[in-house]
Design a protein around this nucleic acid. Sequence first.
DNA 1: GTGGTCTAGACCACC
DNA 2: GTGGTCTAGACCACT
Lengths: 128, 128, 128, 128
Amino acid sequence: MFQLDLRGSKPLYEQIKEKIKELIINNILKPDERIPSVRELAQTLTINPNTIQRAYKELETEGLIYSIRAKGNFVAPLEQQSISSRREDLKNELAKIVAELLYLHEPEEQIISLVQAIYQKKEVKDHD
Amino acid sequence: MFQLDLRGSKPLYEQIKEKIKELIINNILKPDERIPSVRELAQTLTINPNTIQRAYKELETEGLIYSIRAKGNFVAPLEQQSISSRREDLKNELAKIVAELLYLHEPEEQIISLVQAIYQKKEVKDHD
Amino acid sequence: MFQLDLRGSKPLYEQIKEKIKELIINNILKPDERIPSVRELAQTLTINPNTIQRAYKELETEGLIYSIRAKGNFVAPLEQQSISSRREDLKNELAKIVAELLYLHEPEEQIISLVQAIYQKKEVKDHD
Amino acid sequence: MFQLDLRGSKPLYEQIKEKIKELIINNILKPDERIPSVRELAQTLTINPNTIQRAYKELETEGLIYSIRAKGNFVAPLEQQSISSRREDLKNELAKIVAELLYLHEPEEQIISLVQAIYQKKEVKDHD
DNA sequence: GTGGTCTAGACCACC
DNA sequence: GTGGTCTAGACCACT
């Protein structure tokens, strides 16, 4: 499913969170689809179930997944997340990052083509 | 020096971090210039020194300031090796945010014009 | 039967819980009346059965509905022992919320008039 | 400092969260005051440090405390919490609870005197 | 089988 | 000393 960087300083549970988030954002995991069980994923990644559990719990509090006892964890449908405020938050974060990149003399074109690349990837997917 | 939003939802130390960052990015605080000591700033803002310390520490790990024991904290000059890696980090963060905005159906044009607006502001300043 | 806010921030299963609860509280669904089956409701709302099941289960633990295997889910009659303990639970929750509102400097009058407004609405209904 | 119900079904870390929250709300623990260290509290309550850690971490994400590595955990100043939206949320929760109490035939006077009792306790404290 | 909680014990980075 | 992360292993309630 994905691989972890066991050496880096980033906590494993955060890496797991990010990876799952990516899979959801890229629509590889679809709404109401079941994601691997805590034990399953722990085994395939050969790490402790507690670590997975922690990642899943935080994803749940962030509204990205929901869990049903004795059934599993599932991707939360997009509609149930607070889209509008989340979008504003993200745009604020983005503005700060761009301002810092400007300070570090990153050329504007580079940033714009980065944005375009991300959106283009999606268009390709939509044609599938 | 600056004011804090005491009623806002953001932690004080993050607000301080951002404010200092802004001052550096906008060249109001210049390279190798000394910034207020933890105690000084704590007193003028009438908040706990812990809060300032945490803000300064994170700015240091981000490479924006450096501290000399018993002398104070100073703005880090741009000419450091850390710049290119910092730029890569920022672009990675940016990519994640853009990906999530795409997932939330934010139109591409909005993002690009946001980026352009930030860079345009800078051009105006350069004309000063 | 009712509509969900598909864009809101609240999880769907909580919205369903609340809606059903409202229908029971306002006596639109009457004691021992059958409520839609998990599958039925999932189909009419075009959402995942898991979501409905979770909502129903929580309503059951709160004592508002009861389920008979292979027959369906029904509104629990008021004449049960569970009422007094449920009232105590609710009053405890309420006390905590009021304490936090006090901490956040919400004026006492505001809270009391909120309570009165809710009870007054009921009086009007009783006159129907 | 406080006692836990080891038999009940409520998770220990949630009990700890609630207790600390109470202490903060009742101003027994004051802004920027240090709260017991993870190990300290674990020892006095004779439970595992991990359990305390979990409680503290969730309190931090809720904005009630902040932690500084190698220094300890501290009460977050009131001003840095998002008061206005939090108050609205709390009033909504309160309205639902009152509606359910009305359904269960709890007399209006009982609720109002409960609210008044909580606010009166505070007045007494203010006279100290 | 599943998620959820808890313990015991360990290591790290920081100060 | 402090907070933070991770492992190993256990138990529970639920389906």
